[in-house]
Simulated scan of single mutants.
Amino acid sequence: MNIDLLGKVAIVTGSTQGIGLAIAKGLAGSGATVVVNGRKQAAVDAAVAKVQESAPGAEVRGVAADLGTAEGCQALVEAEPTADILVNNVGIFGPQDFFDTPDDEWQRFFDVNVMSGVRLSRAYLPGMEKKGWGRVIFLSSESALNIPADMIHYGFTKTANLSVSRGLAKRMAGTGVTVNSVLPGPTMSEGVEGMLKEAAEKSGKSVQETAIDFVKAERPSSIIQRPAEVDEVANLVVYVASPLSSATTGAALRVDGGVVDSIA
């Protein structure tokens, strides 16, 4: 199986670290021209260098823009007017009790996790349809299906990703453009490491050991009984972004280590 994305332009939002950076590296390694995005120029520049180092000879560009705002989305579109592949990866998360989560925090999560993908899909899908080929991928989460009691505001946004993705797949029916969601489970990104750092220090264990303990305690249905690595998530995204996935659309594709206890 050969994944060849030569001649394709791929935009990966929120790709200065973690899963997004791994996806950017994977797409560049498969021949795509990759556009990296983050809020801060220094972080974007560093990510561009990392992607270029991982895929020598790849064309990599960067756009600093806050995609949690309409203005930030517009700035990205103005800098990169067309795309063949759009990976709506940017997102925020963090535990907070329902009764302690104010309206503005619900709105912030919705703006970043949902509206960024809505706005960018609206901007780029018409061009893909005109070409007769395109890929839009939303990074959702197993939390879209297993809503965490301590992150209801987060789980709600990830469920919304599934709704938008499925609806857009139907809207683009017969055009050669596919729209899918990818649902990671607990993954060893910098964000998760930061969330577990304090617990690791208190227990005297490594962050990796603490992450395994977290999965076993908080996601006991996990079949792999460990967090995934970012590259394991990126591998699925790169396949879905490729011509090889042409019959896959409107799907919610899990790379959650079996956390969601379902046979379908």
Rank of each mutant, 00 (worst) to 15 (best):
P220I: 02
T13E: 06
L145Q: 10
A47N: 04
T175K: 11
I92Q: 09
D150L: 11
R254K: 13
N37R: 08
G250C: 12
G174C: 07
D213S: 01
P220L: 02
Q41C: 04
V9E: 14
S262R: 14
E78V: 13
L168M: 15
L125Y: 08
L21E: 04
S165M: 08
T16Y: 00
S165C: 05
I152N: 01
N88Y: 14
G18P: 02
N161P: 02
K205C: 03
S140Q: 10
G257A: 07
F156W: 08
G204N: 09
S141Y: 05
T159A: 12
D111M: 10
A228L: 12
E218D: 12
T82E: 15
A228G: 14
L120P: 01
G68C: 05
D100L: 06
R108I: 00
A46S: 11
P184R: 01
I23F: 02
L162V: 09
I92K: 09
L125M: 15
V182D: 13
L5D: 05
D97L: 15
A47G: 03
F138A: 09
L21A: 05
Q17M: 05
P126F: 14
Q96F: 00
S222D: 02
G29A: 10
L183A: 04
V51N: 01
G134D: 09
S163P: 04
M188V: 06
E193H: 00
S222K: 01
S206K: 06
A43H: 07
G258A: 07
A149H: 10
D213W: 00
E53A: 15
L86Y: 11
T13N: 09
T13A: 07
D103A: 14
N180K: 08
Q74E: 15
G132W: 09
I23H: 01
Q52K: 14
D256V: 12
L6F: 14
A169W: 03
K40F: 06
F99C: 08
D103T: 14
